[in-house]
Amino acid sequence: MICSFVINFKPLEFGNKIKKYSLDKDIEYFLLNNGIDKKQLKYITISNFLTKDREIEEEKNYSIRFSSIDSKTTLEILKIFFYKRLTNETLKISNTTFLVSNIYHNNKYSKQLDLESFLENPLKDEITIKFLTPTFYKVGSIFIGTEDSRYFFKNILTKFKRSSIGNQFNIGNLDFSKVEIKEKNIKKVYIKTFNIEAIQGEITYKLVDNKDTKLKEMFNILGYFSEFSGVGHGCNKGYGQAIYII
């Protein structure tokens, strides 16, 4: 099961002040302390882009979006939070006590990947991806913030092969130089931690050779899959959150 889901957290007792930009990282530490290992973190995305406040405040609910490309990891994370929800047991994140007030699995940002239904639709020559949070890539020891379509598709392909469904496809060699950017509406966002200008906004990718049927199929699948895998580096810390615009 590859899916995304949104969990509502309600702060009850405050310890350290939690800033919006550190909330996803603090939740990552919570998961590590509750049975999720570092290898599994590579399969998940955690993002607070639904959170508007700069700091976590009292008497409010905060929505965090999770997604996972590994079925086993998905079930383990849901098990942790469903147990907290059903028993009203609180949890500690950065010395602040939270209650899991709700878990959503079927709304705009919570859904299950359904490739069978997706592939029943005609394959497109153009797809649009909205990068909700700053997105950048890591190549070796170098961080790169780029719009280049080859970085996007190669990164998602690597994650797709690593996912629970990757071995179901005979992918072969794909030439992503046959994909170009048709339109873009992006801004550059400087990330001090990595000393990099990341991208954020919308990009429409166009397949210039639609006679390559395998490339066309994977062009569509990878665009759809990116919504669950996240794009680029640091997706388990809130970077690279994307949605596939229908």
Rank of each mutant, 00 (worst) to 15 (best):
Cys3Val: 04
Val6Trp: 03
Val6Ser: 13
Asn8Gln: 04
Phe9Ala: 04
Glu13Lys: 14
Phe14Leu: 08
Gly15Lys: 11
Lys20Gly: 11
Lys25Trp: 00
Phe30Lys: 09
Leu31Trp: 06
Asp37Phe: 09
Lys39Gln: 12
Lys39Trp: 07
Ile46Gly: 03
Ile46Cys: 04
Ser47Arg: 01
Asn48Ser: 14
Asp53Thr: 05
Arg54Ile: 11
Ile56His: 07
Tyr62Phe: 11
Arg65Ser: 08
Phe66Asp: 04
Ile69Phe: 09
Glu76Lys: 15
Ile77Phe: 00
Leu78Pro: 06
Tyr83Lys: 14
Leu86Trp: 08
Lys92Pro: 01
Ile93Met: 08
Thr96Cys: 12
Thr96Arg: 10
Thr97Val: 13
Phe98Leu: 09
Val100Ala: 04
Val100Tyr: 06
Asn102Gly: 08
His105Thr: 15
His105Val: 15
Asn106Met: 12
Asn107Leu: 13
Tyr109Glu: 04
Tyr109Gly: 00
Leu115His: 07
Phe118Arg: 06
Glu120Lys: 15
Asn121Thr: 10
Pro122Leu: 05
Ile127Glu: 01
Thr128His: 03
Phe131Gly: 01
Val139Asn: 09
Ile142Leu: 12
Ile142Asp: 08
Ile144Tyr: 05
Ser149Tyr: 01
Arg150Leu: 01
Arg150Phe: 00
Leu157Cys: 09
Ser164Ala: 10
Phe176Glu: 02
Ser177Phe: 02
Ser177Trp: 02
Val179Phe: 02
Glu180Met: 11
Glu180Gln: 09
Glu183Cys: 03
Ile186Glu: 08
Ile186Cys: 09
Ile186Gly: 06
Val189Tyr: 07
Ile191Gly: 05
Lys192Pro: 06
Phe194Val: 11
Phe194Ile: 04
Asn195Gln: 14
Asn195Trp: 09
Ile199Leu: 13
Ile199Met: 11
Glu202Thr: 07
Val208Leu: 09
Thr213Glu: 14
Lys214Leu: 14
Glu217Leu: 15
Ile221Lys: 06
Tyr224Lys: 10
Ser226Val: 06
Ser226Glu: 08
Glu227Trp: 04
Phe228Val: 06
Ser229Gln: 09
Ser229Ile: 08
Ser229Val: 08
Ser229Pro: 07
Val231Pro: 02
Gly232Tyr: 04
His233Thr: 00
Gly234Met: 09
Gly234Glu: 07
Cys235Ala: 04
Cys235Pro: 01
Gly238Thr: 03
Ile243Ala: 00
Ile246Ala: 00
